[in-house]
Design a protein around this nucleic acid. Structure first.
Length: 419
DNA sequence: TCTGGGGTCCTAGGACCC
DNA sequence: TCTGGGGTCCTAGGACCC
């Protein structure tokens, strides 16, 4: 059997742990730049606020309905996630941390266990030790645990947030209950395709001819079908180092000059290089993109993107920034209003695996220099040491007007208890 | 005025090889 | 008249996830 542990309305729950007056109130958390809604409490969902709602369109609505609004506080959520995962990982030697708020467990050798009692005690322990409520779904396969989990979440009174699919009848009932567009790994495009041939729920999907599924939904769809039928096909996946690292941002205003974009691209490149160094990788190629505002159909659109191969693997901020700017120069065109840009690095090799090239080699002096910069930034705060091409006056990163304190990761934000 | 950010996997098609 | 067959590698783009 597999189990899926999923934190309920995770970001909202994190805010509630340190701010109890938010309990039973509508609460939403906004994306970076306070752009759109990325988490909602049950009360906010009941008010009809959709996922991804643009915040500016809902300003009045939030006020009228007394909705508590927060800017995303990722240091807090990341730290709370670590605490939850530590507890969860005590419950099985085989775990896959699937996202910031979800983990799969493999329950091998639990045949003689009362799995329900085991799951309930895990749920209680996480709540008591971290304050985060979780739902747990258990079934034969990963795809079925996803469904079990949504049942556990949807019917808290009946399930106490723990649901096990352990019989054929329960499986069929659960599959019939799940709308096809709500199935894990069925996105908008596939749902449309399936609806058009009369497949409306997960059960219909399991009955489809597997050749049709293979042909129209690739092996991805076929694996999912097997898994939903109860045939374990998707296994736990080991934690691996990243294969891509990206830093992308929407700007607070439109940029038209290449000099402005160069400053942004340099900053994004530096951020990618820092992330590369933290996982001890070098990149061999990078992609730069810039784009105009896609939500404005009255403006001229231009969204170029370019990938370049680097002459040698590197994780030096200086080198990566230099190549990213060369790439930018090749795609930039005048007379457009750019709203967003990004740098993505890929094709990684290990930091130590240096390959000597005949003509161009990386500058070995960069490595100790970068180590020194990383150390200084760690001690004195992010971005204290910057490249000259970055805007040294720019101290803020993005719009975060409703940010809660970093209760668990910043000593000056620690909560005070009055006895 | 204002609409997020960061990932993974798969496939088709081009370029190349003998 | 007629122009093979079997590979590999790489990349862009689509679809999906949270």
């Amino acid at each position: 059997m597999f189990a899926l542990i999923d934190c309920n309305n995770f970001y909202v729950s994190c805010e509630r742990v340190f701010n109890p007056k938010l309990k039973a109130k509508p609460v939403v958390v906004l994306s970076n730049n306070d752009g759109c809604v990325i988490a909602r409490s049950n009360e906010a969902k009941a008010l009809g606020i959709p996922m991804g709602a643009p915040a500016f369109k809902y300003e009045n609505f939030f006020e009228q309905n007394k909705v508590y609004v927060f800017s995303a506080n990722f240091p807090l959520y990341g730290d709370m996630s670590k605490r939850v995962m530590t507890i969860v990982s005590d419950h099985s030697p085989e775990i896959e941390i699937y996202s910031i708020d979800e983990a799969f467990l493999k329950l091998s050798g639990f045949e003689r266990f009362d799995i329900n009692a085991y799951a309930c005690s895990m749920r209680d322990k996480v709540l008591k030790w971290t304050g985060i409520p979780v739902s747990i779904g258990i079934a034969q396969t990963k795809a079925l645990t996803k469904i079990a989990n949504s049942i556990a979440k949807k019917f808290p009174d009946k399930t106490q947030n723990v649901y096990i699919i352990d019989s054929e009848e329960k499986k069929i009932k659960a599959l019939k209950w799940t709308k096809i567009e709500d199935v894990w790994r069925i996105g908008r495009q596939n749902a449309k395709k399936l609806n058009s041939i009369g497949v409306n729920n997960a059960y219909d999907f399991t009955l489809l001819d597997s050749n049709w599924v293979r042909k129209n939904m690739t092996v991805v769809g076929l694996r999912l079908q097997n898994d939903l039928q109860g045939l374990p096909t998707l296994d736990l996946e080991a934690l691996q180092i990243k294969k891509n690292i990206a830093t992308t941002r929407t700007f607070e205003k439109n940029y038209t000059e290449i000099s402005e974009l160069k400053e942004r691209i340099t900053t994004f490149a530096v951020s990618c290089a820092e992330k590369l160094r933290s996982q001890k990788s070098c990149c061999n190629s990078l992609t730069v993109f810039i784009t105009t505002n896609k939500h404005r159909d009255d403006l001229k659109q231009y969204s170029p993107c370019i990938t370049i191969k680097l002459p040698f693997p590197t994780n030096s901020s200086i080198e990566i920034a230099k190549f990213a700017n060369l790439a930018l120069e090749r795609i930039f065109k005048k007379d457009y209003r750019y709203k967003k840009a990004g740098v993505i690095v890929h094709d990684f090799s290990g930091e130590d695996a240096l390959q000597i090239k005949l003509f161009k080699n990386r500058d070995e002096r960069h490595l100790p220099l970068m180590q020194a910069i990383d150390k200084l930034n760690l001690t004195y705060g992010q971005q204290k040491i910057k490249l000259g091409a970055q805007d040294t006056k720019r101290t803020w990163k993005m719009k975060q007007e409703k940010l809660s304190p970093k209760y668990t990761t910043n000593l000056s934000d620690i909560i005070t208890v009055h006895c």
